[in-house]
Amino acid sequence: MPLIELDQVSKVYRMGDVEVHALREVSLTVEERDFVAVMGSSGSGKSTLMNIIGCLDRPTGGAYRLDGAEVSRLDRRQLAGVRNKTLGFVFQSFNLLSRTSALENVELPLLYGGVPARERHRRASEALGRVGLADRVHHRSNEMSGGQQQRVAVARALVTRPRLILADEPTGNLDSRTTVEIMVLFQELATAGITILLVTHEPDVAAYASRVLVMRDGRVRTDERQRARRAVDDLAATAPPDEEPPKGPPDDEPRKAPPADEPRKASA
Protein backbone atom coordinates (compact mmCIF):
# COMPACT_ATOMS: atom_id res chain seq x y z
CA MET A 1 0.00 0.00 0.00
CA PRO A 2 1.45 3.40 -0.94
CA LEU A 3 2.03 5.86 1.91
CA ILE A 4 0.74 8.85 -0.04
CA GLU A 5 -2.07 8.59 -2.55
CA LEU A 6 -3.31 11.75 -4.25
CA ASP A 7 -6.25 11.24 -6.57
CA GLN A 8 -7.04 14.23 -8.80
CA VAL A 9 -6.34 16.67 -6.01
CA SER A 10 -7.14 20.32 -6.77
CA LYS A 11 -6.71 23.47 -4.79
CA VAL A 12 -8.42 26.67 -5.87
CA TYR A 13 -7.93 29.96 -4.06
CA ARG A 14 -10.18 32.92 -4.53
CA MET A 15 -8.41 36.25 -4.65
CA GLY A 16 -11.20 38.75 -5.08
CA ASP A 17 -12.88 37.84 -8.35
CA VAL A 18 -9.95 35.82 -9.64
CA GLU A 19 -9.74 32.08 -9.11
CA VAL A 20 -6.20 30.87 -8.67
CA HIS A 21 -5.66 27.21 -9.50
CA ALA A 22 -2.74 26.29 -7.29
CA LEU A 23 -3.15 22.58 -7.99
CA ARG A 24 -4.91 21.11 -11.03
CA GLU A 25 -6.03 17.54 -10.51
CA VAL A 26 -2.73 16.18 -9.33
CA SER A 27 -2.56 12.43 -8.98
CA LEU A 28 0.47 11.01 -7.25
CA THR A 29 1.52 8.02 -5.25
CA VAL A 30 4.57 7.80 -3.05
CA GLU A 31 5.72 4.48 -1.69
CA GLU A 32 7.09 4.06 1.78
CA ARG A 33 10.88 4.59 2.25
CA ASP A 34 11.05 6.73 -0.88
CA PHE A 35 13.07 9.97 -1.00
CA VAL A 36 11.23 12.35 -3.27
CA ALA A 37 12.34 15.83 -4.29
CA VAL A 38 9.72 18.27 -5.57
CA MET A 39 11.08 21.00 -7.80
CA GLY A 40 9.55 23.91 -9.56
CA SER A 41 9.65 27.67 -9.77
CA SER A 42 7.73 29.78 -7.32
CA GLY A 43 4.01 29.70 -8.09
CA SER A 44 4.28 26.23 -9.59
CA GLY A 45 2.16 24.76 -6.79
CA LYS A 46 4.90 22.85 -5.00
CA SER A 47 4.28 24.55 -1.67
CA THR A 48 0.53 23.98 -1.94
CA LEU A 49 1.19 20.30 -2.67
CA MET A 50 3.46 20.18 0.35
CA ASN A 51 0.88 21.81 2.62
CA ILE A 52 -1.85 19.43 1.54
CA ILE A 53 0.36 16.37 1.98
CA GLY A 54 1.46 17.82 5.33
CA CYS A 55 -2.16 18.14 6.51
CA LEU A 56 -1.68 21.87 7.01
CA ASP A 57 -4.16 22.58 4.25
CA ARG A 58 -7.15 20.81 2.74
CA PRO A 59 -7.74 20.23 -0.97
CA THR A 60 -10.78 21.78 -2.63
CA GLY A 61 -11.22 18.71 -4.84
CA GLY A 62 -10.07 15.12 -5.12
CA ALA A 63 -9.05 12.62 -2.51
CA TYR A 64 -5.94 12.31 -0.36
CA ARG A 65 -5.18 9.10 1.44
CA LEU A 66 -2.29 9.06 3.87
CA ASP A 67 -1.25 5.58 4.92
CA GLY A 68 -4.56 4.30 3.56
CA ALA A 69 -6.75 6.75 5.50
CA GLU A 70 -8.71 9.56 3.87
CA VAL A 71 -7.53 12.77 5.50
CA SER A 72 -8.91 15.52 3.28
CA ARG A 73 -12.16 15.66 5.27
CA LEU A 74 -10.69 15.69 8.77
CA ASP A 75 -11.30 18.70 11.01
CA ARG A 76 -8.59 20.91 12.45
CA ARG A 77 -8.21 18.92 15.64
CA GLN A 78 -7.93 15.60 13.82
CA LEU A 79 -5.44 17.06 11.33
CA ALA A 80 -3.34 18.21 14.29
CA GLY A 81 -3.35 14.62 15.53
CA VAL A 82 -2.17 13.32 12.13
CA ARG A 83 0.60 15.93 12.01
CA ASN A 84 1.68 14.94 15.47
CA LYS A 85 1.71 11.17 15.01
CA THR A 86 2.50 10.53 11.35
CA LEU A 87 4.35 13.58 10.07
CA GLY A 88 7.48 15.56 10.77
CA PHE A 89 8.29 19.01 9.40
CA VAL A 90 11.56 20.73 8.55
CA PHE A 91 11.36 24.34 7.39
CA GLN A 92 13.66 26.66 5.51
CA SER A 93 13.88 29.10 8.41
CA PHE A 94 14.29 26.33 11.03
CA ASN A 95 11.31 27.64 13.03
CA LEU A 96 12.66 26.74 16.44
CA LEU A 97 11.22 28.41 19.51
CA SER A 98 13.58 31.23 20.33
CA ARG A 99 15.36 31.46 23.66
CA THR A 100 14.46 27.82 24.24
CA SER A 101 16.91 24.95 24.65
CA ALA A 102 17.46 22.38 21.90
CA LEU A 103 16.03 19.71 24.15
CA GLU A 104 12.80 21.61 24.81
CA ASN A 105 12.39 22.31 21.11
CA VAL A 106 12.73 18.63 20.29
CA GLU A 107 10.37 17.69 23.13
CA LEU A 108 7.63 19.93 21.75
CA PRO A 109 5.86 17.38 19.48
CA LEU A 110 6.01 14.78 22.28
CA LEU A 111 4.43 17.33 24.63
CA TYR A 112 1.43 17.64 22.35
CA GLY A 113 1.45 13.87 21.86
CA GLY A 114 0.89 13.43 25.59
CA VAL A 115 4.17 11.60 26.19
CA PRO A 116 5.15 11.60 29.90
CA ALA A 117 8.01 13.91 30.89
CA ARG A 118 10.62 11.23 31.58
CA GLU A 119 10.14 9.44 28.28
CA ARG A 120 9.94 12.75 26.45
CA HIS A 121 13.30 13.65 27.84
CA ARG A 122 14.87 10.34 26.90
CA ARG A 123 13.53 10.31 23.36
CA ALA A 124 14.45 13.95 22.71
CA SER A 125 18.01 13.37 23.93
CA GLU A 126 18.21 10.29 21.73
CA ALA A 127 16.97 12.23 18.68
CA LEU A 128 19.51 14.99 19.31
CA GLY A 129 22.22 12.34 19.55
CA ARG A 130 21.09 10.94 16.21
CA VAL A 131 21.63 14.31 14.50
CA GLY A 132 25.02 14.69 16.18
CA LEU A 133 24.07 17.28 18.77
CA ALA A 134 24.40 15.21 21.93
CA ASP A 135 26.72 17.86 23.35
CA ARG A 136 24.39 20.78 22.49
CA VAL A 137 21.29 19.53 24.31
CA HIS A 138 21.02 22.53 26.63
CA HIS A 139 22.10 25.19 24.15
CA ARG A 140 19.42 27.70 23.33
CA SER A 141 18.37 27.95 19.71
CA ASN A 142 19.72 31.47 19.35
CA GLU A 143 23.15 30.32 20.56
CA MET A 144 23.55 27.86 17.70
CA SER A 145 24.68 28.16 14.09
CA GLY A 146 22.24 27.75 11.20
CA GLY A 147 23.38 24.20 10.52
CA GLN A 148 22.99 23.25 14.17
CA GLN A 149 19.55 24.83 14.32
CA GLN A 150 18.44 22.89 11.27
CA ARG A 151 19.74 19.69 12.84
CA VAL A 152 17.66 20.46 15.93
CA ALA A 153 14.71 20.90 13.60
CA VAL A 154 15.42 17.51 12.00
CA ALA A 155 15.63 15.97 15.47
CA ARG A 156 12.27 17.56 16.27
CA ALA A 157 10.81 16.08 13.07
CA LEU A 158 12.05 12.55 13.74
CA VAL A 159 11.49 12.38 17.50
CA THR A 160 7.90 11.17 17.10
CA ARG A 161 9.10 8.35 14.80
CA PRO A 162 6.96 9.65 11.93
CA ARG A 163 6.16 7.79 8.70
CA LEU A 164 6.85 10.85 6.58
CA ILE A 165 9.12 13.86 6.93
CA LEU A 166 8.25 16.93 4.89
CA ALA A 167 11.10 19.33 4.28
CA ASP A 168 10.32 22.70 2.73
CA GLU A 169 13.52 24.22 1.30
CA PRO A 170 15.45 22.88 4.31
CA THR A 171 18.82 24.01 2.93
CA GLY A 172 17.73 27.37 1.60
CA ASN A 173 19.39 29.27 4.46
CA LEU A 174 22.50 27.09 4.75
CA ASP A 175 25.93 27.19 3.16
CA SER A 176 26.91 24.33 0.90
CA ARG A 177 28.82 22.31 3.47
CA THR A 178 26.01 22.36 6.01
CA THR A 179 23.63 21.61 3.14
CA VAL A 180 25.50 18.40 2.52
CA GLU A 181 25.49 17.60 6.24
CA ILE A 182 21.71 17.95 6.37
CA MET A 183 21.32 15.86 3.22
CA VAL A 184 23.44 13.14 4.85
CA LEU A 185 20.93 13.13 7.69
CA PHE A 186 17.95 12.87 5.32
CA GLN A 187 19.55 9.99 3.43
CA GLU A 188 20.19 8.21 6.73
CA LEU A 189 16.56 8.68 7.73
CA ALA A 190 15.36 7.39 4.36
CA THR A 191 17.56 4.33 4.80
CA ALA A 192 16.09 3.87 8.27
CA GLY A 193 12.63 3.65 6.70
CA ILE A 194 11.21 7.15 6.89
CA THR A 195 9.69 8.49 3.70
CA ILE A 196 11.06 11.92 2.78
CA LEU A 197 9.41 14.57 0.68
CA LEU A 198 11.69 17.51 0.03
CA VAL A 199 10.76 20.73 -1.71
CA THR A 200 13.66 22.58 -3.28
CA HIS A 201 14.51 24.67 -6.28
CA GLU A 202 18.17 23.69 -6.26
CA PRO A 203 19.02 20.82 -8.63
CA ASP A 204 22.09 20.04 -6.51
CA VAL A 205 19.88 19.31 -3.56
CA ALA A 206 17.36 17.36 -5.63
CA ALA A 207 20.27 15.19 -6.82
CA TYR A 208 20.33 13.45 -3.43
CA ALA A 209 16.76 12.21 -3.85
CA SER A 210 15.87 8.99 -5.61
CA ARG A 211 12.83 10.46 -7.33
CA VAL A 212 12.34 13.98 -8.68
CA LEU A 213 9.02 15.65 -9.45
CA VAL A 214 9.03 18.88 -11.41
CA MET A 215 5.93 21.01 -11.13
CA ARG A 216 4.67 23.82 -13.28
CA ASP A 217 1.33 25.68 -13.23
CA GLY A 218 -0.22 23.37 -10.67
CA ARG A 219 0.61 20.16 -12.52
CA VAL A 220 3.34 17.56 -12.23
CA ARG A 221 5.34 17.98 -15.45
CA THR A 222 7.96 15.33 -15.01
CA ASP A 223 8.30 12.47 -12.55
CA GLU A 224 11.59 10.62 -12.84
CA ARG A 225 13.49 8.09 -10.83
CA GLN A 226 17.21 8.66 -10.59
CA ARG A 227 20.32 7.24 -9.02
CA ALA A 228 20.72 9.33 -5.90
CA ARG A 229 24.02 11.04 -5.24
CA ARG A 230 25.55 9.84 -1.97
CA ALA A 231 25.82 12.79 0.43
CA VAL A 232 28.36 11.05 2.69
CA ASP A 233 30.80 10.89 -0.23
CA ASP A 234 30.42 14.60 -0.86
CA LEU A 235 30.92 15.32 2.80
CA ALA A 236 34.11 13.28 2.88
CA ALA A 237 35.41 15.17 -0.15
CA THR A 238 35.25 18.53 1.60
CA ALA A 239 37.23 19.52 4.64
CA PRO A 240 35.18 20.94 7.47
CA PRO A 241 35.94 24.65 7.71
CA ASP A 242 37.37 24.71 11.21
CA GLU A 243 37.87 21.13 12.26
CA GLU A 244 40.55 18.54 11.61
CA PRO A 245 40.72 17.61 7.91
CA PRO A 246 39.22 14.18 7.38
CA LYS A 247 41.55 11.36 6.44
CA GLY A 248 41.80 10.83 2.69
CA PRO A 249 42.26 14.16 0.96
CA PRO A 250 45.88 15.04 0.07
CA ASP A 251 47.78 17.11 2.62
CA ASP A 252 48.69 19.83 0.21
CA GLU A 253 45.07 21.00 -0.13
CA PRO A 254 44.25 24.13 1.85
CA ARG A 255 42.77 23.31 5.25
CA LYS A 256 39.99 25.81 4.89
CA ALA A 257 38.57 25.00 1.50
CA PRO A 258 36.09 27.75 0.69
CA PRO A 259 32.73 26.08 0.17
CA ALA A 260 31.97 28.39 -2.77
CA ASP A 261 34.60 26.57 -4.84
CA GLU A 262 32.59 23.42 -4.87
CA PRO A 263 31.12 22.46 -8.20
CA ARG A 264 27.66 21.72 -6.78
CA LYS A 265 27.08 25.32 -5.88
CA ALA A 266 25.08 26.25 -8.91
CA SER A 267 22.42 28.67 -7.82
CA ALA A 268 22.00 31.17 -5.07
Binding site: G54, L56, R76, R77, A80, G81, R83, N84, K85, F89, N95, L96, L97, L108, P109, Y112, G113, R156, T160
Partner: peptide, 12 residues
Protein backbone atom coordinates in the same frame (compact mmCIF):
# COMPACT_ATOMS: atom_id res chain seq x y z
CA UNK B 1 2.36 28.03 13.50
CA UNK B 2 5.26 25.84 14.59
CA UNK B 3 3.30 24.49 17.53
CA UNK B 4 0.39 23.69 15.22
CA UNK B 5 2.70 22.04 12.67
CA UNK B 6 4.11 19.68 15.30
CA UNK B 7 0.65 18.71 16.46
CA UNK B 8 -0.86 21.33 18.77
CA UNK B 9 -4.65 21.34 18.44
CA UNK B 10 -6.59 24.62 18.44
CA UNK B 11 -7.60 23.77 22.01
CA UNK B 12 -3.95 23.40 23.05
Amino acid sequence: GVRMAVGATPLN
